[in-house]
Design a protein around this nucleic acid. Structure first.
Lengths: 191, 191
DNA sequence: TTTATTTGCACGAATGTGCAATAAAGATAT
DNA sequence: ATATCTTTATTGCACATTCGTGCAAATAAA
């Protein structure tokens, strides 16, 4: 055998550089050259590790999604009553390390690209349904089923909308404020 | 004098072709050649009428914005009581001709591009504030000021979030359903 | 004829991709 | 231990393509 197998850290390094470029330049102007420059590597690595730009972009979105989901499961274990579990689920979407303009901008590009790329579309759908069902599972304990579904859907929409607002230049929307706004709504619907 | 002056219809034709390309291919793959092909013209026209691609993109976004605002003012004149005026304002955002995947996708690209382009950012901000203030003006008649601002903000977020959902492939969200969901929320907050 | 409009191409710049060459890190043989 | 070999990792460039742009020519209306 020769050298050590494919370096997972190096893959992650390229993925991180990709996310940085997307939030800094946008999807349109994120080039292979810029990504590799940001990562301190030469352009050939992208094809060695990912086979092409499109695969890298999809992998970068998967990575971003994993990061957010990681926050979610971590914050769920503590609570037991429905309302505080709702609060925990929402809290993961407004975690100070997550609810930042850079991440919201990247996520916005993800939403915009998904309708044009079946792979991203599938990722978006899975993620949306998982989020909605997590909420739904708790709301069902507080409300009749037919109301619960609408409330879950409205809550997802409000969270997404606040992410849009946060992504824009000059947005004045601290994570705590956004979290409080959604919780105030959820509380008003579940009493 | 020579021929008739600059043809406004021709400008609009190019703008429409641009919007079609954005919703069909996305911002990243909307090229001057594709736009002009869609419009049935040659590439030179873009620079003759708009001076460059960037100006055209900005003009296309302005046009989209005008279309939506047109629906809004038209539907406001009828009503007089706050709740039905709220309903009218929201109805313009969920008008069957507006709340379609093609338009929602284009709007998503607008949101994603705005953080990278000062001109688009300014457009986004003006539009968001106008929408929020329109809602706020009615909500103030129903609620104390400090609550009213939060409710307006939450409503805008929910509308935006439903636009995201509508843009995705396979979304099952009729305009009437989306409208009803936001109105149900607004009603629950203003009674 | 005069002026406005439209065409179609050519040019330079930039991009994604593939590849040949090189370096690095075990493994193997001597 | 030392040298050699094998596999993996990384480089950096060349290639074909594509893009936005500008312009000279052509066309059409007044």
């Amino acid at each position: 055998m020769g050298r050590k197998p494919i370096d997972a850290d190096r893959r992650q390094k390229i993925v991180d550089a990709t996310l940085t470029c997307i939030h800094r330049f946008g999807f349109q102007e994120t080039t292979v050259a810029r990504i590799c420059d940001e990562a301190g590597l030469s352009t050939g690595n992208v094809h060695y590790y990912f086979g092409g730009k499109q695969n890298l972009l999809e992998e970068a979105m998967r990575s971003l999604l994993r990061t957010i989901r990681g926050k979610m499961v971590a914050s769920l274990n503590a609570s037991t009553d429905p309302v505080s579990r709702l609060d925990a689920i929402l809290g993961s979407n407004f975690h100070p390390e997550i609810f930042r303009p850079e991440i919201c901008i990247t996520w916005l590009h993800f939403w915009a690209q998904a309708p044009h790329d079946p792979t991203l579309a599938r990722l978006e759908r899975v993620n949306r349904m998982r989020f909605r069902n997590n909420l739904l599972h708790e709301i069902r304990k507080l409300r009749p089923p037919e109301q619960a579904l609408d409330i879950a859907r409205q809550t997802v929409a409000m969270v997404d909308g606040l992410w849009i607002e946060k992504a824009q230049i000059g947005a004045e929307l601290p994570a705590e404020k956004a979290h409080a706004m959604v919780m105030q709504y959820a509380a008003s619907q579940t009493q």
